[in-house]
């Protein structure tokens, strides 16, 4: 089941990423973007990076994507046809995408993984990933969240309080600014 999910989630992420680009309706696009984040965070949680997964959920899905969604809905871009936009940004997009791809490939090469076009079966990536994490599996009980929680609540409680106060301020601030 876990392996199946590990295979399914990246696939879903890829599909929804494609939909993000191709969707005509910007609201749908943002919804698919949320889908990408959700699946990626599920994937991260499955391979044991729980804190990263939670961060994805809270920050990207909870804050940024919802903000996007609201902005898009407020701006009422429904009628805008994306295909008629001038295609000035394509070269930039191409450069960005190719640089991302290059860095990804170099990263994968560093991980001693065979060039990933060789086999389309994504599951081949997983054992290598889990093998790099194998040392941490000896500390089964101590996960990222445990470690972070220990650090925050035991070692640096003061910092936590200060951050809490900053957040309190972030709640009060908009109230003050909107009064």
């Amino acid at each position: 089941m876990r392996l199946f999910l590990l295979e399914l989630l990246p696939f879903l992420a890829l599909v929804s990423a494609i939909f993000v680009i191709t969707a005509d309706n910007p609201i749908l696009g943002v919804l698919f973007l949320i889908g990408v984040f959700l699946t990626v965070s599920g994937y991260l949680a499955l391979i044991g990076l729980t804190f990263l997964a939670l961060t994805y959920l809270i920050i990207y899905v909870g804050a940024i994507a919802i903000l996007f969604l609201f902005v898009v809905m407020m701006m009422d871009l429904n009628l805008l046809d994306l295909s008629e936009l001038p295609s000035v940004s394509f070269p930039v997009a191409a450069i960005l995408a190719s640089s991302l791809l290059a860095s990804l490939i170099s990263l994968l090469n560093q991980c001693n993984i065979p060039f990933w076009f060789d086999s389309l079966n994504l599951i081949h990536l997983i054992p290598s990933l889990s093998s790099t994490l194998s040392w941490s599996s000896t500390f089964h009980l101590i996960e990222h969240l445990h470690v972070l929680g220990l650090a925050l609540y035991v070692a640096f409680p003061l910092l936590l309080i200060i951050v809490g106060l900053i957040l309190l301020l972030a709640i009060i601030g908009p109230i003050v600014l909107c009064l």
Partner: peptide
């Protein structure tokens, strides 16, 4: 940050 955020507000 805690001392300057209120000032921004």
């Amino acid at each position: 940050e805690l001392q300057s955020l209120p000032l921004y507000i």
